[in-house]
């Protein structure tokens, strides 16, 4: 692990605390492991928020989370003494009972810790360039995901415009999938809809989604055989420099050629004003 002016011994100068519902391989690499009872993330975070402010908490409330009061007191003590703390969180928090409420509790906890010492929180993103997609959608549309452009300008509503919701409702008459395999992970009604409509897949591999698609286009893998940019989870962009040649085109080239072909077609959205003053 990186050594620095303030942490000259690298990993030895850092403390890693792992919180999970089971003892995973990552837990073995940590200095401390806290096993939280499944579905009790929100309660645990809320109790810790109360404890840093010395508010009263009953033993029974703490016991229900699966972590003892003593362990929590010790953890909070260590957190307050830290010079710079980071809370990393992933889908175990945001996709289980409580969902975005859990994430909100954790972000608030991190903000409140700044009354005592420097603390930040950062989501651990999934595989591939998820952060990059999120960053670019934000600068082009204002929103990170769950965006509808069907009125000619961006609108946002996770739960309505997110991919899974649109597919489950059967709201699309075509699907264009790049760098993802919803056929392997999404619920059955969403997969059934993908199989029903013309689905186009761009992927270096033949995926579950490719098998139910009308068209699969094999592309060069980005970062291995195609250049580009990948955004790290802290939103620092890294240049991708290909090490190998590929007989396949890059995703970018395929998208560009499809876009050029579509530009030849008549515009279906004519007679729109240039701008609307206010959406509400």
């Amino acid at each position: 692990m990186q050594k620095s002016k303030f942490l000259p011994r690298g990993r030895k100068d850092r403390t890693v605390v792992m919180v999970d519902i089971r003892e995973t391989k990552s837990a073995k690499a940590a200095d401390h492991f806290l096993q939280v009872r499944p579905g009790k993330d929100f309660e645990l975070l809320t109790i810790m928020r109360a404890m840093i402010k010395d508010q009263e908490i009953s033993e029974a409330e703490v016991a229900a989370t699966g972590v003892s009061m003593e362990v929590l007191r010790d953890l909070i003590d260590q957190m307050k003494k830290a010079k710079f703390g980071v809370m990393f969180f992933g889908m175990g928090l945001s996709m289980t009972r409580g969902k975005h409420m859990n994430a909100a509790a954790l972000l608030t906890f991190a903000a409140e810790m700044n009354a005592f010492t420097k603390f930040v929180a950062m989501p651990m993103r999934g595989h591939g360039n998820v952060t990059g997609a999120d960053v670019i959608m934000r600068w082009q549309t204002g929103y990170p995901f769950g965006i509808s452009l069907n009125r000619g300008y961006p609108r946002y509503n996770p739960g309505e415009f997110s991919t899974v919701d649109v597919l489950v409702r059967g709201d699309t008459d075509c699907a264009f999938i790049i760098g993802a395999d919803p056929g392997a992970t999404m619920p059955k009604p969403a997969i059934d809809h993908l199989a029903k409509v013309p689905t186009i897949v761009l992927d270096p591999h033949v995926t579950h989604t490719s098998r139910l698609s009308r068209v699969h286009i094999t592309t060069a893998p980005a970062g291995i055989a195609a250049p580009g940019t990948g955004y790290r989870m802290d939103e620092v962009p890294m240049p991708l420099k290909p090490a190998l040649n590929s007989p396949y085109p890059s995703d970018e080239e395929v998208v560009r050629r499809i876009k050029e072909a579509i530009a030849e077609k008549p515009d279906w959205m004519t007679n729109q004003p240039q701008m609307i003053e206010s959406q509400v």
Binding site: L149, G152, Y153, P154, Y156, Q274, I276, Q279
Partner: peptide, 16 residues
């Protein structure tokens, strides 16, 4: 973003 002015895309111009 939800309440503010919206620029509608055209064949040659991006939305925002």
């Amino acid at each position: 973003h939800r309440r503010t002015q919206a620029f509608i895309r055209s064949k040659t111009r991006r939305s925002g």
